[in-house]
């Protein structure tokens, strides 16, 4: 029965692969699931309670949340402008050579995750939200550049060609004919990435790039677990609010 041997072989291969994975990991799994470890865990979790809620920490958490929002917003804004600038050559407007080079650049920007960019940018721009903003901008430029380039390639060329046939310059023809066509799509891509970037901005701080993440890292390092718990709650709230809001907006836009 060849129909059964193939899945069985695949299953066996998978089990071998899985066993190899488990064998590699250094963790002491038996002790992890022991009663002692469970008690340790319970104590660790218990140490977070109650979350700190004095006015001082609340003010700081609020500032951190605003900082996170600001990072995500400015990062996305820069990325939208840079992405459009890169999308023009990447859509083949300035020849094959420029197209290939920019595509490579966009792939590079996109392949490196925000957090890795943040760790790199911190070296150049120091600790703080500015590094996080730049890191978001770098990664998002790659993502948006590629999406924008696709949008530009799929747009109807007729309005642009028509203006060019009347002797209109390339720049003016782009802003009068191509841009108004792609604008709604560009805006919706940018908004969608902004939503993702709020979540990303919340965590970038763990490598020192500002926002709530940096506060969390700070309080955890000093074993101020009550304060850390407050930051965590703020983080979860922020992410949940953004989720709900974007769901609302999307439903309003589609209906």
């Amino acid at each position: 029965m060849p129909s059964l041997t193939r899945p069985l072989l695949a299953l066996a291969a998978w089990l071998v692969f899985f066993a190899a994975c488990v064998a590699t990991l250094s963790g002491d799994w038996a002790s992890l699931f022991s009663a002692g470890s469970a008690r340790g865990m319970a104590k660790f979790v218990g140490d977070f309670f109650p979350p700190a809620h004095d006015p001082e920490i609340l003010r700081k958490v609020a500032a951190g949340s605003l900082e996170t929002l600001a990072m995500s917003w400015i990062g996305t804004l820069i990325a939208a402008v840079a992405g459009l600038g890169l999308a023009l050559p990447a859509a083949g407007r300035w020849g094959g050579m420029a197209k290939g080079t920019t595509r490579l650049l966009l792939n590079g920007l996109r392949a490196v995750p925000e957090l890795v960019w943040a760790a790199l940018v911190v070296v150049a721009a120091g600790l703080g939200p500015f590094s996080g903003t730049l890191a978001l901008a770098l990664h998002t430029s790659g993502v948006l550049g590629r999406l924008f380039a696709e949008a530009l390639e799929n747009v109807s060329p007729e309005p642009y060609e028509s203006l060019r046939r009347h002797g209109v310059g390339a720049a003016a023809a782009f802003w009068y004919a191509t841009f108004p066509q792609v604008l709604p799509q560009l805006a919706s891509y940018a908004l969608y990435r902004w939503e993702i970037n709020i979540r990303a901005a919340a965590i970038l701080g763990v490598v020192g790039a500002g926002g709530l993440g940096q506060m969390l890292h700070f309080h955890l390092s000093l074993f101020q677990l009550h304060e850390a718990a407050s930051v965590l709650i703020a983080m979860i709230l922020l992410v949940t609010v953004v989720d709900l809001a974007s769901n609302r907006v999307r439903r309003a836009l589609t209906s």
Partner: peptide, 28 residues
């Protein structure tokens, strides 16, 4: 080409452009 004007049967107007800009595009 600035001295001639070819008007296609279906005018190539970007859907979201305002009429005023679509007309003034003739001045470009």
């Amino acid at each position: 080409r600035r001295r001639l004007f070819l008007a296609p049967q279906a005018p190539p107007l970007p859907p979201r452009q305002r009429v005023v800009n679509a007309v003034l595009a003739g001045r470009l």
